[in-house]
């Protein structure tokens, strides 16, 4: 029933299995693939991982992952410095940048409030955001682009409540049906929210 691997392979399989989106079979496949390549491949892969780990750090302003200080977006003179878009993870910035609709600044929280995982407002990069807002008088709008999960929603609400009365406008991303999909396949909660948030055309 149980598979018997040499200990080194077993360690590699469990290490790969910890990666997101990699399951039991996937991690075995990856491990055997890596071991099936020449020495160079494994050396380059591990060097790439540890180099990235060494060189990448958090931007002191927006907390995005960066190689420069501050990051490209924070140091750009082309960006609209009156708006900050708040996201949960650095990957979200990449998604938002791809749409080329938004030209403002970002702030990465590195998580969302979740008491069951012992993550409170102090455990995410929220203080950094508040200090940023205090120190700058340019910012007029904070766009809350946390995930549409209960934790993302709670975090957005928390920030919105904190900013109430500061004169800074807070907005939340709308919920809707993905383009190119069928209404039939949309889940009911999304459909209901999209229905409630319907607009004049």
């Amino acid at each position: 029933m149980s598979r018997h691997f040499p200990p080194a392979i077993s360690r590699l399989i469990s290490a790969l299995g910890k990666l997101p989106g990699i399951g039991r079979k996937g991690s075995q496949r990856l491990a055997y693939y890596i071991l099936g390549q020449d020495d160079e491949f494994a050396r380059e892969l591990s060097a790439a991982i540890s180099n990235a780990r060494d060189q990448i750090h958090l931007c002191p302003i927006c907390c995005d992952l960066t190689e420069t200080d501050p990051c490209e977006i924070c140091s750009s003179t082309q960006r609209d410095r009156t708006r900050i878009c708040v996201v949960e993870s650095p990957r979200d910035i990449a998604s938002l940048e791809r749409i080329q609709e938004y030209n403002g600044l970002y702030h990465v929280l590195h998580g969302a409030i979740s008491p069951m995982q012992d993550i409170g407002p102090e455990q995410i990069k929220l203080k950094e955001l508040l200090i940023r807002l205090q120190e700058s008088d340019q910012i007029t709008e904070v766009i809350l682009a946390t995930n549409p999960t209960v934790e993302g929603e709670a975090t957005a609400l928390y920030i919105a409540r904190l900013l109430k009365g500061t004169g800074i406008k807070t907005t939340r991303l709308a919920h809707g049906i993905p383009m190119g999909s069928d209404l039939e396949y949309a889940d009911e909660v999304t459909l209901m929210r999209a229905f409630i948030g319907r607009q004049d055309i």
Binding site: I113, G120, P121, V150, E153, A154, T155, L157, Y158, R161, L162
Partner: peptide
């Protein structure tokens, strides 16, 4: 405030 963000939802 801590409770409110959950109570709302």
């Amino acid at each position: 405030l801590h409770l409110e963000i959950w109570d709302e939802q």
